[in-house]
Simulated scan of single mutants.
Amino acid sequence: MGFLNDRKAEAKEAIDEGDSKQGAEILYHALLEGPGTFSENLKAITDDPNS
């Protein structure tokens, strides 16, 4: 799931730079716009062993 991994990386970068609100917005929209349902996208983002 390249889309979700890319958004996850963007969110992590935003959070690392001190912009947690932007990081949260990136993740939220990724969960809505990703390839699966909201629940499937959440599972895919949180179950990644390379986190």
Results as ranks from 00 to 15, higher is better:
8 K>Q: 07
6 D>F: 14
37 T>H: 06
51 S>A: 12
33 E>L: 09
43 K>R: 14
2 G>A: 08
3 F>S: 09
27 L>P: 03
23 G>Q: 03
4 L>H: 02
27 L>H: 03
42 L>V: 08
23 G>P: 01
46 T>V: 13
24 A>M: 14
37 T>N: 08
14 A>T: 00
17 E>L: 08
26 I>E: 00
29 H>N: 10
9 A>D: 09
22 Q>D: 12
6 D>K: 15
18 G>M: 02
2 G>N: 14
26 I>A: 00
46 T>L: 10
48 D>Q: 04
6 D>S: 14
29 H>P: 05
50 N>H: 13
42 L>E: 12
30 A>K: 02
40 E>I: 06
49 P>K: 11
17 E>K: 12
28 Y>W: 10
35 P>C: 06
43 K>M: 14
7 R>N: 05
39 S>A: 08
14 A>I: 00
15 I>G: 01
43 K>W: 11
39 S>F: 07
47 D>P: 09
10 E>T: 00
5 N>I: 13
5 N>G: 09
37 T>K: 07
45 I>F: 04
47 D>F: 15
23 G>A: 04
1 M>K: 14
21 K>A: 09
5 N>S: 10
10 E>M: 08
18 G>Y: 01
32 L>A: 11
41 N>A: 03
32 L>W: 06
25 E>M: 14
47 D>H: 13
12 K>L: 05
45 I>H: 04
35 P>F: 07
27 L>T: 13
20 S>D: 14
12 K>D: 03
38 F>Q: 08
29 H>T: 13
24 A>T: 12
47 D>R: 12
26 I>C: 01
50 N>S: 12
37 T>S: 10
9 A>Q: 10
40 E>W: 06
33 E>S: 08
12 K>E: 04
20 S>K: 12
15 I>S: 03
47 D>G: 15
39 S>N: 13
39 S>R: 15
42 L>A: 11
32 L>G: 05
9 A>C: 04
22 Q>S: 13
42 L>Q: 11
35 P>T: 08
20 S>H: 12
6 D>R: 15
19 D>C: 02
37 T>M: 06
25 E>P: 06
7 R>M: 07
25 E>F: 13
13 E>C: 04
51 S>D: 11
16 D>L: 07
24 A>K: 15
38 F>Y: 10
11 A>D: 00
49 P>A: 06
51 S>P: 09
20 S>C: 07
29 H>S: 08
7 R>P: 04
18 G>F: 01
9 A>R: 13
25 E>I: 15
45 I>W: 05
25 E>H: 12
34 G>R: 04
